[in-house]
Simulated assay, not measured.
Amino acid sequence: MRFLLLLTLVLLGTPAGLIKAQFSGDVLGGQLSIVLDPQYPGPRDLVTATLDDYSLDAGGATIAWFIDQQFIPGSENKRSISFTAGDVGSKTKIEARLTSINGQTMVATQSIKPLYVDIIIEPQTYTPIFYAGRALPIYGSTVFLTALVGTATSLANNSEYTYNWKLNDKTLGGGSIRGGNKISLMVPHGRSNIVTLSVADFNGQTVARRLIEIPSVDIDVQFYEISTLYGIAHKTVGDSLNLIGNSTTIKAVPYNLDLRSVGGDLFTEWQIDGLKQKNTGSDPFEITVYGQGGGLTNITFKVRNLSELLQGDENSFQIQS
């Protein structure tokens, strides 16, 4: 009873402004904020806003959410809400109001202004011209990255922004670079690597952040038959090939081979039934095979970049003559 009487006297003798200050700090014991996921949404991204009041003594308080000063129906007493970000250049204000059992209110706000950011990935590895997919990186190969930042109508001037690139949390290029929307990297060990790009404005304020995955695959040798009439077939030989005629020419295609190894320290070898074949042509990736008068012939091709010993593959198929 003495404690309740003392507390009543203190509150009655305290100005209203000081009571509110105590509510936002001393009485509740902390601050109120909104956490966004993703932290820097892109245009039309699905965004989750979560109220962070764990440092507050806010037992019994009510919660209400507003977007652009409009109350969100059904958001009462929810710790998080989800919504769709606006288009490029639009601005959205998110507001959370926490009201204590005494009727005092704390307000937390966040603003979203989506910026268009895209990253072009260009692995410097090989695929044939007829391949409809894209080349993939392998360990030790080079990858070119280009960031495109834009508004609702056009791409922005790169000099208006500062770019900070990281590979697996390690900064690339020595640090943040104004206008540095292009960078290259060498693929490290590991099947998956994460590149993080942070874009900041003239004031040094981060306005966008994007994460992309850079996979690391292996060289994949596939075989294609070459016709003197139609050229190289677009369908792989597979595990076996029926020989029609006396001979056929086969091309080995090393998907994802490091482009720097072509014409460099590159080892190639053809084998027929386990015997090494001398390359008499101008293309080390082609071989002409002659029928053996019936039965199966085993064809093997090996390729390896001697400058990067982990860059290599071999594959085999059989010819029925």
Rank of each mutant, 00 (worst) to 15 (best):
T162D: 08
G103L: 10
F317D: 08
A49W: 04
L310P: 04
T249L: 03
S24T: 13
T153H: 07
A132T: 15
A132H: 13
G291S: 13
I219M: 07
S141D: 04
I101W: 09
L167Y: 11
I67M: 08
T268V: 07
L148Y: 12
N193M: 07
K78E: 02
N102P: 00
I287L: 10
G30L: 07
S307C: 00
G179L: 07
A96E: 03
G264M: 02
P123Y: 11
R2N: 12
L185P: 05
L36G: 01
T196K: 13
K20E: 10
N279P: 01
Q277W: 05
N181C: 07
S227C: 06
T206N: 08
W65V: 02
V149Q: 06
T8F: 08
P128Q: 01
V253I: 15
T171N: 05
S75P: 02
I119S: 05
Q70L: 09
V237A: 04
V199Q: 11
V262C: 01
T62V: 01
T62I: 04
P41R: 13
T153D: 11
A58D: 15
L310M: 13
E95G: 01
V88M: 14
I244R: 14
R79E: 00
L36D: 03
W165K: 10
Y255T: 01
P123G: 11
Q292N: 15
Q69N: 14
K20S: 04
I129G: 05
S216C: 13
S261Q: 00
K302N: 09
I244M: 10
I119E: 03
L309T: 14
G175N: 10
D52R: 10
Q69I: 02
L115W: 07
V253C: 03
V117Q: 09
I250T: 04
V107L: 09
I194N: 12
F223R: 06
G174Y: 13
E314W: 11
I212N: 02
I244H: 12
I214S: 02
L241I: 08
V10S: 04
Q205I: 15
N246I: 06
L211K: 15
L197I: 08
V107P: 02
T206Y: 04
Q69R: 13
G175Y: 11
T171E: 14
N315T: 11
I121M: 08
L4P: 02
R210C: 01
A58L: 06
G25K: 14
A85Q: 04
G140T: 09
T297G: 07
I183C: 03
G263K: 05
G60R: 07
L5E: 12
R260S: 08
T196D: 05
P123S: 10
N203E: 12
I94T: 03
N168P: 08
G312W: 03
